[in-house]
Amino acid sequence: MDISQSVIMTIMTAATPLLLAALGELIVERSGVLNLGLEGMMATAAACGFAMAIVSGSTTVGVLCAVLSAMALAGLFGFVTLSLGANQVASGLALTIFGLGLSGLIGAGFVGTSRPPLEPLFIEGLTDLPGFGKIIFGQDFFVYTSWILILAILIFLHLTRAGLTLRCIGENHHSAHAIGLPVLKTRFRAVLFGGACAGLAGAYLSLVYTPFWSPGMTAGRGWIALSLVVFAAWRAERVLLGALLFGGATVLQLHAQAASLGLPSQLLSAVPYLATLIALVFMSLGRKSGTVTPGSLGQPFVPER
């Protein structure tokens, strides 16, 4: 494998959890709900997925449990904010605090345990093609899932009636309600979908990215994924671009660390967070204020009467 190929592979590895989580959140936010609990859902999923993979000895069971655990948290969030109309920002934060604590409870018994990470796909004759072979045919399940998700989301949002309904509800829930669209039901489904994606992202971290589980292993990736959605102006194809850019920043950080340029390692570790901040600033500079944000984002839906 040559250098450029390995760099691209590393970028994709770093980008995939962000991409998965951000794509889920994109659908949630397009429906008008702001779920800040991404970090908590990812952390819980990472712990739950790892624990169940160890207990059952099967990666598939681990992934499934990760997805289900994150969906359960998302369901809790949906019940609290949609059915009971609680403040979304604060509830999302609460979910993050709760999820981080829960991940510690679940994972405590598995610290120090390690398992072989999920193997990438290998197709004789395709994966060993020179140049792009490994990049296109040598990825793992999660990477392919994220690629399919982007396509599926693009088709769903722009070519299906259900996607139109979702966007409409996100833009103006009162108008949507007035023409008979099911605001809360659609939102609840979107929130669950977001949970499932966060679950995949979490599972990726503990089952593919590293061979072990450690407390706080999400390291702010949930928050970076949230920023990616804003950075991408709520569009799926741009989420991919953003995720790859962040993957690139991570790789740059790793290479600089390896090359020991004499820079403090903490500065390099700060790169993803600073890059996120700078990306958010540039996005705002390049656009007129608030024109792309879903109109009802973050507001509880209370039918007018």
Partner: peptide, 28 residues
């Protein structure tokens, strides 16, 4: 009992506070 239980409890507590706030402002 693990320390994370306290974090868990505090997250739950915040959720419960928000729910009961909501229940005082809205009729369900």
């Amino acid at each position: 009992l693990p320390l994370d239980l306290t974090t868990c409890f505090q997250g739950l507590l915040l959720l419960c506070v928000l729910v009961s706030d909501s229940l005082t402002s809205y009729q369900i």
